[in-house]
């Protein structure tokens, strides 16, 4: 069983939480909490087990950002969600050297949240124009009152 294997391997990494998830409720089989600095380690382990990076995103909470990584496996359904809290104005380490897929996802998070990834090879904006001076998915961001074409 992949789930047991992952649970065992992940608990060896000294993470804040490794617990089975309520699949019917959240759609995830395994819920993990990690410090951002531990992410490269976690990613390396997930890649070793043959998991792919399903999605990488962030949520802007009042006191901190939470990076949310979803991993899944092609052969055996086992969705692992990893939450990593990043304090505001702090940087998170990149995992794009482990999962090339993360390259674009991290650029997207940077673009929309302004959260920087240390060690990312090419941290440019990806969806917004390069000259944009805002990060729209921050809760503080308020769209201007003027029409969009102004």
């Amino acid at each position: 069983m992949l789930l047991n294997e992952l649970t065992q391997a992940l608990s060896r990494l000294n993470l804040a939480q490794v617990a089975p998830g309520d699949y019917a409720k959240t759609g995830c089989h395994l819920e993990v909490e990690a410090a951002p600095a531990q992410m490269p380690e976690v990613a390396r382990l997930m890649l070793e087990k043959g998991c792919f990076l399903e999605s990488l995103t962030a949520v802007d909470f009042p006191e901190h950002f939470t990076l949310v990584y979803h991993f899944n496996h092609f052969r055996e359904l086992c969705r692992t969600v990893v939450h990593a809290r990043v304090p505001k104005e702090a940087e998170a380490p990149t995992i794009s050297h482990i999962y090339p897929a993360a390259n674009w996802y991290e650029r997207e998070v940077y673009d929309l949240f302004g959260l920087k990834f240390a060690g990312h090879p090419d941290l440019r904006r990806i969806l917004l124009p390069f000259e944009a001076d805002f990060h729209p998915l921050r809760k503080k961001f308020a769209p201007s009152e003027t029409p969009a074409d102004a």
Binding site: L47, F52, L53, E54, F74, R75, P100, A101
Partner: peptide, 18 residues
């Protein structure tokens, strides 16, 4: 496929029945 997180016909074309 694993490294880039591909899905759909992209992985099935490579032989992964996902």
């Amino acid at each position: 496929c694993v490294k880039y997180g591909l899905t759909g016909p992209m992985v099935r074309g490579s032989g992964i029945p996902y």
